[in-house]
Nucleic acid binder design. Structure first.
Lengths: 98, 98
DNA sequence: TGCGTTACTAACGTCAAAGGTATGTATTTT
DNA sequence: AAAATACATACCTTTGACGTTAGTAACGCA
């Protein structure tokens, strides 16, 4: 198994939505009433997708808020896993006390 | 439509996992290597489920990290929606510039 | 009875990040 | 030329995630 580069939600926003649809970050900011800085930082992977952001995106793009939060979750989970492998290995599955 | 009380993830942790399985918050903290305060605050709805928490829970309970983060997402989305209805109403679906 | 484990809460303190406003600098459009 | 588009940087505030420590209480057992 290769380890995927772990692509962040901002990259998907840009490459799967903005570019194909011909929407600029500026326009997205204006139409969703999100400050430009927030959009800019999300695209650069410096900021997370929150529920507020997810809802605004979902209304504008016509998809679901869970899609956007799901992207963030996947990204977070992958990052945590690769950072704390050993830590997590020490946790054992629940078992009823004997 | 009635508005559901919007149940937070900690409540589900407690009522759907801890109580039925007979696991105390104290034991969960010990076995997942999470400080007790974190568990306590999550159960009381004062703290969110993060990727770290979700992964530890999923290993211990034998389910997925996305399940736990999904609970948090659902909760966040509901809260945002009820708080910012009007704000979101002003956002319009994307349309190609004419 | 007294010690240790279990169980939970409350009170600090730190650091990261989410949020906004303001500003700067191009480029395009009118 | 003026206004709108497009994007980035800097600064500030507030929230919240995190941990450590300390405190209380109840139960188990030797």
């Amino acid at each position: 198994m290769e380890k995927l580069p772990n692509i962040h939600p901002g990259e998907i926003l840009n490459e799967e939505f903005l570019i194909p649809l011909g929407v600029t970050a500026y326009r997205l900011a204006k139409e969703t009433n999100i400050p430009q800085t927030r959009i800019s930082e999300i695209i650069k992977g410096k900021r997370r997708i929150t529920a507020d952001t997810a809802l605004r995106f979902s209304i504008f793009f016509g998809n679901s808020a869970k899609f956007w939060l799901g992207l963030q979750d996947d990204f977070d989970i992958e990052n945590e896993l690769s950072e704390k492998q050993e830590e997590f290995n020490s946790i054992k599955l629940f078992a009823i006390a004997s």
